[in-house]
């Protein structure tokens, strides 16, 4: 009897243990894995996330005009394992803490995130390339003596030509000296 009273007192002092949701917003930890979010600025289309995704929730394909690619995340297939985030080389993928996922059947096929990421026309030949995101390029070529701003806008073969031309010019100047 005494134990019972002690427990009663303890529980009264503790207050209700019920989570206030849905009357109030529930507490969500910072690390909660809620929904995959892609930053299109940083995506280079390397498809490593597509390779990692166990359920096949990520779809990456060129758009009809071939001027860019569509990046789709199907939230209804995503197991929220975080493999895409972990292995994304440019850290373009993050997981938001948004867990409000319940939806009606009508919305089933709209429950996805679509991103359309444009290609860049090569300044030399006009071929479509995915330009290296500027932040990434700044990190990658931090110690490069060559100014990369224009070179980044070229496709690999035009860049090769540009490099050859650069070499030629420097050879010429050497000969003149």
């Amino acid at each position: 009897m005494f134990r019972f009273l002690k427990l009663l007192g303890k529980n009264l002092a503790q207050g209700p243990s019920t989570d206030p949701f849905p009357a109030k917003e529930a507490h969500t930890p910072e690390r909660f894995r809620g929904r995959v979010v892609v930053n299109p600025e940083q995506c280079v289309g390397c498809r490593i996330c597509h390779h990692m995704c166990a359920g096949g929730a990520i779809r990456i394909e060129d758009n009809e005009e071939k001027t860019g690619y569509n990046f789709t995340v199907w939230h209804n297939t995503c197991a929220l394992c975080g493999m895409c985030r972990h292995y994304c080389p440019t850290k373009a993928i993050t997981l938001s803490t948004d867990w409000h996922n319940a939806h009606t059947q009508e919305d089933k096929y709209d429950w996805a995130a679509h991103y359309s990421i444009p290609y860049l026309a090569c300044a030399g030949c006009g071929a479509h390339i995915r330009m290296l995101p500027p932040q990434l390029a700044a990190r990658l070529y931090a110690h490069s003596p060559v100014d990369m701003t224009d070179l980044l806008k070229l496709c690999p073969s035009c860049r090769q030509l540009a490099a050859a031309r650069r070499e030629e010019i420097s050879n010429d100047t050497h000969e003149q000296e």
Binding site: P22, F32, N76, A79, L80, C81, N101, A102, H103, W111
Partner: peptide, 27 residues
């Protein structure tokens, strides 16, 4: 499952947290 049974509400997640399931039940 909607190949066989007409589903009304979907609660995705692997697994969804209880609050999310409650949202689905409310719906």
């Amino acid at each position: 499952i909607d190949r066989y049974i007409p589903v009304d509400v979907n609660v995705p997640g692997c697994p969804p947290r209880p609050q999310s399931i409650m949202e689905g039940v409310l719906l």
